[in-house]
Structures are given as C-alpha cells and as structure tokens.
Design a protein around this nucleic acid. Sequence first.
DNA 1: GTCTATAAGCCGATAGAC
DNA 2: GTCTATCGGCTTATAGAC
Lengths: 193, 193
Amino acid sequence: MNTTASHLISVAAKQFAEKGYSGASMRSIANAAGTTQAAIYHHFSNKNALYLAVLARHFDAKSSDMADDLAQVSDPEKRLKILVHRLLELVEEDEQFRQLYFRELLETDEERLRVLADNVFGELAVTLTELLKELAPRMDSHLMLLSLGGLVCHHLEARKLSPFLPGGKRKHQQLDVLAEHITELLLHGVQRS
Amino acid sequence: MNTTASHLISVAAKQFAEKGYSGASMRSIANAAGTTQAAIYHHFSNKNALYLAVLARHFDAKSSDMADDLAQVSDPEKRLKILVHRLLELVEEDEQFRQLYFRELLETDEERLRVLADNVFGELAVTLTELLKELAPRMDSHLMLLSLGGLVCHHLEARKLSPFLPGGKRKHQQLDVLAEHITELLLHGVQRS
DNA sequence: GTCTATAAGCCGATAGAC
DNA sequence: GTCTATCGGCTTATAGAC
C-alpha cells in the first residue's frame, strides 16, 4: 500500500474533521504532511477525491468484534450494557469518526449520504441492527439503531458543551457515567417504579 | 430595528446553516440578499460579527410556551408525550437551528460554545431541565437533557440518511412515528414486559 | 446607506523541471 | 514522486464617490 498516500489521508482526515471540507485547504494539508500542495495531485486527482478517500478509510472496518463479545453473554440486560459500553468506547476513541459523521449528516449531497450509509453503516449497522432486534424485539429496529447512535454520538460530542449547560458537572464527562445513564435509559426508561 | 441588517441576518443564517462558516462567502450572502458584498460591512464589522449576529438571533427566544401547555396536563405519561411532540415540532420547523447547532457542536472555540449554551440553551434548557426533573426524578436531569436533545435532533437530522440504512422505510420519515418511538423509549425503555 | 474599484492574499489546479 | 512557478479565480476587507 502506498505509504505517502496513506499518510496524506491521515493528515487530511484530521483537518477535514476539525475544519470541514471548505475550511481545510490543500496547502494546509500539504504543510502538515510535510510536503507541497502540488504533490498531493500525484496521489489524488483533486480535493474531492482526497476527501472521499478519507471517508472510505474512516467509515470502514469499524464493525469490531462486538458481536463475538456479546455472544458469550446470555442475560439480555448484561448484553445491552456491554453493547453500550463497547459502542461508547469505539466512538470515543475515534474523534475523527464522530466529527466526520456529523459533518456528513449536514451534507445534502445524496450520493455522499449513500456512501456514508454503505461504508460506515454497512457492516456495523447491520451487526447493530441484528443485536437490537434481539435485545429490543418490541421496538422498531431501524429507529432503535438511530436512537442508539444518536445517544452515543450526541453525548460524546456534547461533552464540550456540557459544562455550560444547567447541572453540568465534572462527573458527566466520565465515560462510565455516560454508559450507565444510556444503559439505564434504554433498559427501563425514565419511570422504573 | 434596522430592516436591512435584519434581512442580512436571515439570508446569512440560511447560507451558514447550509454551507458552514467557511463555505458561505460574503459575496454569495450579499447576492442572495440583493446587495453588494461591501455593503455588508456598513452593518457588520466583519464576517465573524455577522455570524455571531446569526447565532444570537437563532439561538434566542426559543423557549416557547411548552411549560404552559404542560401545566394543564397532570398525567406524567401524557406530559412526556406532549413534551416530545412539541420539541420535535419546534426543532423540525427550524431546520436552520438544527444545522447551526450541529455545526457549533463541532466547534472547538470555547467562548463560542459558551455563547451557544447561554443563548439557546439559556432559557429553553432551564425550562426543559425543570420539566425533566418532574418527569424523570430518578434520572440525572443534566444527562436527561442531553439524551432528549440528542434523540430529537439526531432523529430529525438523520432523516436524509435513514433510507439508506438497514430497515429504513417511508414511515420512518413521519414526525408522529418518530415521536411515538422516542416517547416509548423514554417512558419504558426497550424491555417493557 | 449603498455603490464601484481595488488591495492583498489564499484557493484549487496545472505545467514542466528534475 | 516531489519540486518550483504560475494561472485564473475567489476571498475578506478597505477607500472613496454619491
């Protein structure tokens, strides 16, 4: 695999995630990668091709071995607990994934949304949907997928905002506190007797 | 109130929401507003000031009379149902609010996040937090606010993506289907007997 | 309060040397 | 495969007429 192109993708991913497509320039990407702007065009035909390469890498192979881990546990409650925890870890450790996902959500280009769904959500979404069907047979599994994804991503992305919101405390930054809240909400809702 | 400045803010809001800060140019905003780029500088000192004016308007006075509507209903279950419905309507009808909110979430500038929290979430967040304390006394009200906001905003924003995800059907676009799903999830979780 | 004109600089992309 | 140089165009912002 071409090492230079691969390195360019890594650097570009960081910049696209942080600054958005139009906020990141070929020049600044080249500088951060220690090369020149013109050199990028040897590896990618244009800026959009570079961006698509970034998406292809970061929205791929994210399925992880979640299904295998869950297969060992039989109690549904514990299974959901593990699922939420794994998913939070997965999405937390890859900040770029989260940022790129939210940026793509704001995109209106339909083909780009399709690429997003097929790649990210290709394997991972199918795995998750199957797990959710088992764990929540009573609920619409498609909407559950969106609820779970929304809860996990929004809680993580809103961590920066949390301190300024009513009741925001330090403990609300902790991953296990978030995991417990989401799990409890998903399992029993707000009204457990 | 200056009508020209006000009109500029409206036009700018649309463009910033759709294309982001660096994607929207002073020229394109001026063109859409039917004036010239230089004229904007008579009303706003620079691009950032225009952007802040957009945020100030769109993240303000969004509290609505949700609290009043809810005060008339005593049954907690119905109260939550109404809350979710109202919130979905509120956030659905103002697409720009949603887009600007997600874009600001991606922002790292701490002062900007503070402005966001104080303005948007100033009044509305306090109202919602109070309501959530009543409706979900067992749960952490701060995390509940983030869960509720995340569910509502993510479901609405992911509507474009939904058709490409596993199990996505036309009915999942309907506001009342989303409302029922979110309400059910919040009330009882996934495991109601 | 809006215009034209322009400054100074960054943008994506290409040409061609090495 | 990477460089320098450059093109045409667009960017924010300002100057000054009306």
